[in-house]
Write a protein that binds this DNA or RNA. Sequence first.
DNA 1: CCAAAAGTGTTGCCGGTACACCCATGG
DNA 2: CCATGGGTGTACCGGCAACACTTTTGG
Lengths: 208, 208
Amino acid sequence: MPAAVIVVIFTVRQDGLSVLLIERAAEPCPGQWALPGGVLQPGESLDSAAIRKLADETGVSDVFLEQLYTFDRLGDGRADIVVTYFALVDFARTRLRSELTWRPAWHPVGRLPPLAFENERIVAYAEERLRSKLAYTNVAYSLLPQRFTLTQMQHVYETILGEQLDKRNFRRRVVGLGIVQETGQTAKQGAHRPAMLYEFVSRRPTVV
Amino acid sequence: MPAAVIVVIFTVRQDGLSVLLIERAAEPCPGQWALPGGVLQPGESLDSAAIRKLADETGVSDVFLEQLYTFDRLGDGRADIVVTYFALVDFARTRLRSELTWRPAWHPVGRLPPLAFENERIVAYAEERLRSKLAYTNVAYSLLPQRFTLTQMQHVYETILGEQLDKRNFRRRVVGLGIVQETGQTAKQGAHRPAMLYEFVSRRPTVV
DNA sequence: CCAAAAGTGTTGCCGGTACACCCATGG
DNA sequence: CCATGGGTGTACCGGCAACACTTTTGG
């Protein structure tokens, strides 16, 4: 039995931290929701399979994507070993491919439908890792556009961590630790004072 | 092709942080050293296979053992996917089984012989994880006997971290954070003042 | 003129680090 | 008496959390 790859794809939207799920058409478990994944093609590496799956489902590449954990005996009939990955994408850049037999959709992690194959465990584990990595790395670069305001960035952090942050402390940290830097440009957005646009100093995963 | 499991088994000895290696008798790569491992038995879970391998090689169980990373394409002819684990054992409790065709031995990580199948990468990765986990968890419980002096414990930390630690600060931390506690008993060891024996508050992996 | 978001400093606390000496024992 | 490891307290520093008001803009 071949190995399979599953990708937990997170994004942040208005309704909170969300994960991409697919409504299964095929056996087993038709009609149930599950994480996107599939068996390894012959000769394909694990990382390539994860990259392929991510691109297939969201149309994006060049985002944060990292191996998460390897599970076995998930009850899926197709594979005994499932190598899971997790990815972070900017919601605005994704283009889900909706077809009749293939219904992908974003679901807030707080309100998941029942999932097939113990996928809840995988989501919970990925969520934990995401929260932990957010605290000491720059992975958020993958959840925001190239340029953004610090308020946008703070919203992303607050959504994932589930708590309110102090604006001044937040700005001091992310700028002071060299996670983000000013671009010199400002953005006008509605009935507000123009805001400085920032960018990540590095768009690769980095421990800060 | 079935999946395989590899276990990186660490211990701390006089000559430093060491890892258990096996001199390969069988093809491929006879005569070379490699990490202990083997293919998954039919119906066996990943965790069970790792526990079995660890017990086979060292005779110990009930120690710290955790999944590390899943590699592919390591060049081993027997498996395409290799799920690695890492374990920490108290050197004094181990009983290596030496046979003619099976030569296990401890090797200081600073002086490894050439290894088969890119096993160097795996050891390096495990070492990194060990150092990181030592800092914020109680995993050292698995490298020490049930009862020990704080000096012994400090030696373990210094060996792994590769730096000298301040005795008073070390004691304050591990006692103050509730990692270890006094047993009330003291040990006389040679020409020295009797030393208080300590034990870990919890002998399960815990984030402190 | 009002609503909405942008932007900006200071203070207190706590945890981490640096640092040096006396004590008990066995040989 | 000496060699060896056991055991203890203090002072400084830096990072982190708490805290409130003014500014700009569009409607």
